[in-house]
Design a protein around this nucleic acid. Structure first.
Lengths: 248, 248
DNA sequence: CATAAAACTGCATAATCATGCATCAAAAGT
DNA sequence: ACTTTTGATGCATGATTATGCAGTTTTATG
């Protein structure tokens, strides 16, 4: 059994039972507990599960803790930190939702004045922790799964916005397929957000590079900044270098 | 059972019953009382529960809150329960924010289909816990103190809404001064919400009766339902009976 | 203030984890 | 085809963690 398969299986088990035990998995998959531990570590690092002593738990159910998640999110935190460099005082920023973005929202500076425009409930809630930002929420029908507003009214409101920077996470990015997503409504909103901004920054962990989903949002040529946890000169990144204006 | 699971279970129990006993938990979870004590200590340290001799209590209920605040909590639950009677399948409901409203949002039925329209970030977040409701969020500039959207754009959007019922909490209500509030922006939004609804329900604990704030929202005559923790025939209530259509 | 329940302390133990290293297989060069 | 490289895996070892137990101290309460 391949590593990838095994990890998929672990995720499935967690989705099913909300928890897994290392001993249990080791026996059922016929590999050593060390291997399982390494799998859990990797999955935890990319934020898919919550690793605990003795096994792992479903992230969605057992989320809230702060301390032990600091270590889990190293990749996303790295991305978030790099993104900070794009911020300039007085900017109007359109910002999306998603886990990578959330990491970014947690480490924002307290000495800049910025105006954030968002359709994401989680982003707005996170931003309320800061006193130095204006928050403008664009309403609409709330999509339960993604916790953000979508639909015609949202798109219409976005058409009236002119932001300096648009910061989005993504599920898939590929040279041919461009930026893409599996949720049709999300695609519409993201398109509108990109159209409403002078510059576009896409945040993603490198494992999403080279994958594509059902609906295209934009071509890679329209992305100004691509920010991953890797160094810009990493061989994995250089193949994107021609198309995207700046890789960070 | 994993430590984290156990602790999560303890939190759930506290949310459910507002208290737990060490002995009880030890028996039910099949671990020593020492372990339970260590769990309670940890949870208490991270501020999730209030540890006391013999077990632990719900922080939100008992912590450092004064007697009268605990009392106010039960009053709000009582109000919330009475409000449930106004709901009918298929309704479009404009709903505000505030603590009384939040209690109401916690006990909503899971078998009705309703559409909630709100400007309150806390209300929207709370509503996302239900799968049987549509949620429409009206955007705007978010006011940090109240965590809801206000401003011209919000008012404009409310003008296009026609809801069946508007449910609002209030800080002040008085026969002469009518419904009033000290926050100017909130007043504008509440006015617009009331205008956009066929029926208006005001939720308030009785201590707010007879007080007034700087800005008037509406006259009491425009309130359809006034819901307090008191019985409608309570002498304190009967003086309102002439003006307000229905006291619950 | 007497008493029992509960909490704390230190310690023992077993389970779990981290780390370095050896092995093997697949992939990549040459 | 042969070597080199890379990555995944298992194992040994020492560290860490979770938990229970015994003995002592603290707390609640009549």
């Amino acid at each position: 059994m391949l590593k990838k398969e095994r990890q998929e299986y672990i995720i499935k088990q967690i989705n099913l039972h909300n928890k897994v035990l290392s001993t249990d998995l080791s026996e059922r998959l016929g590999v050593s507990e060390d291997t399982i531990r390494r799998d859990l570590k990797a999955l935890s690092k990319s934020g898919k599960i919550l690793k605990v002593h003795g096994g792992a738990l479903s992230k969605t159910l057992y989320s809230d803790t702060r301390e032990d998640e600091i270590y889990a999110y190293t990749e996303k935190v790295r991305i978030a930190n790099k993104t900070l460099n794009l911020l300039q005082n007085g900017m109007y920023i359109l910002i999306g939702g998603g886990t990578t973005i959330r990491e970014f929202l947690k480490i924002l500076p307290k000495d800049l004045h910025l105006t954030f425009i968002t359709v994401s409930l989680t982003a707005a809630t996170e931003l309320l922790n800061y006193t130095n930002y204006e928050i403008i929420f664009l309403g609409g029908k709330i999509s339960r799964s993604t916790r953000f507003c979508a639909g015609g009214e949202t798109i219409r409101q976005l058409a009236d916005v002119r932001a300096d920077l648009c910061i989005l996470g993504t599920n898939a990015i590929d040279l041919d397929g461009g930026l893409s997503d599996s949720d049709y409504e999300a695609v519409q909103v993201k398109k509108a957000m990109i159209n409403a901004s002078s510059k576009v920054a896409i945040l993603t962990i490198s494992e999403k590079l080279g994958s594509r989903e059902r609906f295209r949002i934009k071509n890679t040529a329209e992305i100004d900044y691509l920010i991953t946890e890797l160094h810009p000169n990493d061989p994995l990144m250089t193949e994107y270098a021609l198309n995207i204006k700046r890789i960070i």
